[in-house]
Amino acid sequence: MSDTTPPRAASPRPVSPCPRCAHETIEHITGSPVPGVWEVLQCARCLYMWRTSEPARRTRRDAYPEEFMLTPEDIGAAPEVPAVPPLRGPGAGPATR
């Protein structure tokens, strides 16, 4: 998907982009038990999750610290930890460690 034509379907209303990766598809995860105080949101691309009542340095793209920003390239280059082992059929003998 392109960042210039953000789909809004996942979000009940337009919200700011992801503070961390600037993606525009933001999911609504939950709201405050006291109605209307805060919401918990999540970026559909980098999975950053935050509460709307947090300080700007955690919730706004323009105030988000550069050292914590994530790009699609970073996500693509993320290593697998731990690596997924090759499949072994049942009865293939004891697993090696």
């Binding site: 995860i29 950053y48 999750m49 935050w50 509460r51 340095r57 955690r58 050292e67 914590f68």
Partner: peptide
């Protein structure tokens, strides 16, 4: 089985990716 219904989750450090 929604974890937000049971735990008042809070975030810790500024750079943490979530709860």
């Amino acid at each position: 089985a929604d974890i937000f219904r049971v735990l008042p989750l809070i975030r810790l450090n500024d750079g943490d990716g979530g709860f």
